[in-house]
Computed example of a mutant assay.
Amino acid sequence: MKLDKMVRSVYPKLMPYVAQLADLPVEEMKQALGKDTVYKLSFNENPLGPSPKAVEAMQKALLDLNLYPSSNGEAVISRLAEKEGVQKENLILSNGADEMIVMVAQTFLEPGDEVVMPHITFVQYLASAHLMGATPVLAPMKDDLGVDLDAILARITPATKLVFLCNPNNPTGVAIPADELRAFVEKVPENVLVVIDEAYHEYAVDPEYRTSVDMVGQGKNVFVIRTFSKIYSLAAARIGYGMGPSAIVDAINHVRPPFNVNSIAQAGALASLDDTAHVTESQAINQQGKELITRLFDELGMKHLPSNTNFVCVDTGKDSTWMFEQLAERGVIVRNLAGYGMNTSLRVSIGKPEEMQAFVAAMKEIIEK
């Protein structure tokens, strides 16, 4: 078999998802480390768990597993349109935010096209560009690791089709000020789509941050991505959504597989949207966890970025791989940011109170020794 003659020309640039220690489920982490107790603070998961109303709705939906789901998720889309103040034709569902990113790439990108994105951001944007044979163009960050919109604008050429922004950004947690983002969109050519991933929207606390959904209603060349994986804690169900001008949504629907979001996920999402108390509690737990570990970092003299997410990015001042391994030895798993070129930084997800206390104790022990 001559695989190189069979696969697409972009194949050498496509990297399969290979789970590292920080990516494993807790039970597999325990096996890998040989420990009975492991604290997973690496995947930005909601420690509160899903809404009880969502669980009840999903359990009820199990009785109809013999039936195909709504192809476009009509009930969820109608509820989202009401919540977000857009029209139903401005909405499209996906199998998590990851699929939405891939569908956008499949809709708009061809070999030779360019995709501009910040140098430090969610890796799926880079992967989706490579998938379609397009050229990713990385713009440098600001000195404070904020997204440099001027640098991105300077890299837009006649070959540019997409700009990817994560706001608030992952893995830094920094938000883009709303006025700066709006001014940026006004300067972007009309034939370039600005994709704004707002996966962490509900966690944002920066007073200068605002969602970009209002620009959708104004017909701007903006497509906003959201997910039910974070604040709604439905990561395993895989459901996300996008909002954009109706023509953009219609174009993406041309590549969207039918029944891409299952009935169980749709039921959970619909019930989650009506449980505002669960969202409020999730935000409160998250804020408490952030305050706990940022106080720790201040005590230890470690710089950390302002977080508008459910994680904190911290510069430990030491080799990040060494620090990651030291924490892992103590059963605490975080995200090593060496792969982003941040060789002294870690990303710490906010977990349950006992998980955060375990992280605090482990960090103090490491530093003291």
Rank of each mutant, 00 (worst) to 15 (best):
M58W: 12
P245T: 09
E291M: 11
Q59M: 13
I101K: 08
P52L: 05
L337C: 08
V188Y: 10
E291R: 12
N253M: 14
P245M: 06
N260V: 07
D144T: 09
L346Q: 07
T211A: 09
K187D: 05
P189K: 06
A237P: 04
G112V: 12
P69T: 06
K83I: 11
I196F: 03
P16R: 14
L48P: 02
A105M: 08
F108V: 03
M302W: 15
T276P: 00
A251H: 09
V55E: 08
G146S: 14
Q106W: 01
D197C: 12
S246N: 10
D197T: 09
N260F: 00
V360P: 00
A129I: 03
F43P: 00
L165E: 07
V10R: 12
F164N: 02
V163G: 04
N46Q: 08
E110A: 14
A139N: 04
D315W: 02
L24A: 08
E299V: 01
L300H: 01
Q87E: 15
P258R: 14
V55L: 14
Y340W: 14
L346E: 13
S9Q: 12
V147N: 10
Y39G: 05
I366S: 07
K318G: 00
E84W: 13
V18E: 13
P140C: 07
V116D: 02
F108Y: 15
V332Y: 00
A358H: 02
P177M: 12
S246R: 14
G268D: 08
V332K: 00
L41Q: 03
E354R: 11
A139P: 05
K40C: 06
P69W: 02
I293W: 02
T344G: 09
G73M: 06
K35Y: 08
M356D: 04
F223W: 14
N260P: 03
N286W: 01
N310W: 03
G341D: 13
S70R: 02
A183M: 07
L126H: 07
Q106C: 12
F311Y: 15
Y39H: 15
G34H: 06
P353I: 09
D298L: 08
A204T: 09
N343A: 10
A61K: 06
F359Y: 15
N260T: 13
A362S: 12
G34K: 04
F259A: 04
A277N: 10
V279C: 00
D274P: 02
G268P: 03
D23Q: 07
N95M: 13
A265C: 08
L91V: 05
I252P: 01
A265P: 01
R256A: 13
E198G: 05
L24E: 12
T344I: 00
E365A: 15
R155P: 06
M117V: 09
